[in-house]
Design a protein around this nucleic acid. Structure first.
Lengths: 291, 291
DNA sequence: CCTTCCCTGTGAAATCATGCACAGGGACAA
DNA sequence: TTGTCCCTGTGCATGATTTCACAGGGAAGG
């Protein structure tokens, strides 16, 4: 069944975009019979019919559009490989990119980087916010600051502090607001989401988002109460905390870089300083209490 | 040169992950000679050597790691196709996902959605923040709110307001801060980035980020001055605007959905309400002035 | 009505990729 | 040193893919 050939997707996409076997074949520079057979192979190996055949050409029914969108993602990713391959240049000296979740990029890291920047003014510090595919995209940065229970094998790093979570809501509505905000996207597959499922009945969920920063904005606008990382909830004056942080939800914050890059002196210095910055804010990160 | 076979990436990835032709071949269930030739074909078609050959196996030099990471992205995207193909289910009723840039997801849309939610309490409104690949990932949401000069063909929508940009910096440092913050990632390929390049000499750039929300946080922490969407800059009390919004940088904000979904009544209603919400805040969006 | 054009679909020949078997070489242990 | 093991790399037979050429059918236009 799974003959699993990524190249078939290229043909699927071409047919979807050109509307017919023949047009796709012209665009791809191959014979139309080839396209016919590759599409047939793809459909058979996945056990479904993707296209509507008609004498006028191949059409994708609307309910199959998502597959095409997903295939477009693949195309974009392949393009990215090409671009990476082309501009295989090393990162410019004097410039370090730090990646983290958007919460930390907004709530804590700017402060820490500002301290570091004043001590090392020659350095250019870029922040790369990436919630999803963190483990995959990690090479778009030299240093990663990641809340996680453990670190992937090829990363080398240390724990700087722990991140705590609590429930927040709009200050003026406060306790009266009985609606909840749910976790979407990649956040939906975290222990936090399980915990939340135990707190809020599904019919009480008025909305959701795939990012804590957005959730904080929604909670502040009065859409409902949300579980947020403490430093994020505390940093927004429009929000009020409804309960103490849940100790069972604490997550270590790792400061890491690729094992291969662990010895670069500049990166090692920066890692140490970020670690120190996190450690100095440990209480704030875990409980939202400013030292 | 461009023989362009996506399937070769599968072999590249397998060799990178297993460390040798032979191990990759075992994992893929093919002969090692096949792997050898596919790798060779890939390298030749891209005109470079990706792996370091040694008697002990194939190794990727650290500077080539990015290519592998990009290939992993492709793998993830292919997985997504499979998952989409498997669970070809429709979105649950009574739940609408709205996607936009992180700036608007944080600064304006929560307010608008809160108004809508109070009028249509049975609806669950999810916000999906997506800066990059917006045009590709658009099917992860039903409605898109997008600042852009024009709309892709397969989207149908209207302009709700215009988004203005201005330079902001930390209130306490204010004008004294002579450092700038640059635009990274996808933001680096926008007209805004060109404009910024005309304002700030490269050596004055102390940092950067791929998201305006993160840039706002960095500017507020005193890392430098940043160009920000007006509603985002105005919503942060720690920031002060250094100059009037640049009229030439204004961008229309589209409220759109897939052409195929344009007629769904529930979505049409929601689109209208979002449009109204944007129009009512036109001055705030364009100049940062609260009506 | 017929003609033309563009589409899908199919069978046979040619091309290309794959698997197999084997050569060569480094690493490691006896 | 010798033997073993695992690795890369290469010729050749085989089998799968692709191309080519052609059949059939709907749509548009005279």
């Amino acid at each position: 069944m799974h003959r699993d050939n990524w190249d078939d997707l290229r043909f699927v996409l071409a047919v979807a975009e050109h509307g017919s076997l023949a047009a796709a074949a012209r665009a791809l520079g191959v014979n139309h019979a080839t396209v016919l057979r590759r599409i047939a192979a793809f459909e058979q190996s996945h056990g479904l019919t993707l296209f509507e055949r008609s004498p006028a050409g191949y059409r994708i029914p609307p309910e199959r559009l998502k597959v095409i969108e997903a295939a477009r993602e693949v195309a974009a990713a392949v393009d990215a490989v090409s671009r990476t391959l082309r501009g295989a240049g090393a990162a410019p000296a004097g410039r370090v990119r730090v990646t983290s979740t958007d919460s930390l990029c907004v709530a804590v890291l700017p402060e820490i980087l500002a301290e570091i920047s004043s001590e090392m003014p020659e350095l250019r510090l870029d922040l790369v916010a990436a919630n999803e595919r963190l483990d995959l995209a990690r090479l778009s940065a030299e240093i990663a600051v990641r809340p996680a229970m453990s670190l992937p094998d090829d990363l080398s790093g240390e724990i700087g502090a722990e991140l705590g979570f609590a429930v927040y809501a709009q200050r003026v509505q406060g306790e009266r607001c009985r609606q909840w905000l749910g976790l979407g996207g990649t956040l939906a597959r975290t222990p936090l989401a399980d915990w939340l499922a135990g707190q809020a009945e599904p019919e009480r969920i008025a909305g959701g988002a795939d990012s804590f920063v957005v959730l904080a904005g929604m909670a502040a606008a009065g859409l409902g109460r949300a579980v947020l990382p403490c430093p994020l909830g505390e940093s927004d004056a429009r929000l009020v905390r409804l309960a103490a942080p849940q100790p069972e939800l604490r997550v270590p914050i790792w400061v890491a870089c690729h094992a291969e890059l662990a010895d670069v002196p500049r990166l090692a210095t920066l890692r140490r300083r970020i670690l120190r910055g996190l450690a100095r804010r440990a209480a704030y990160l875990a409980c939202g209490v400013r030292a």
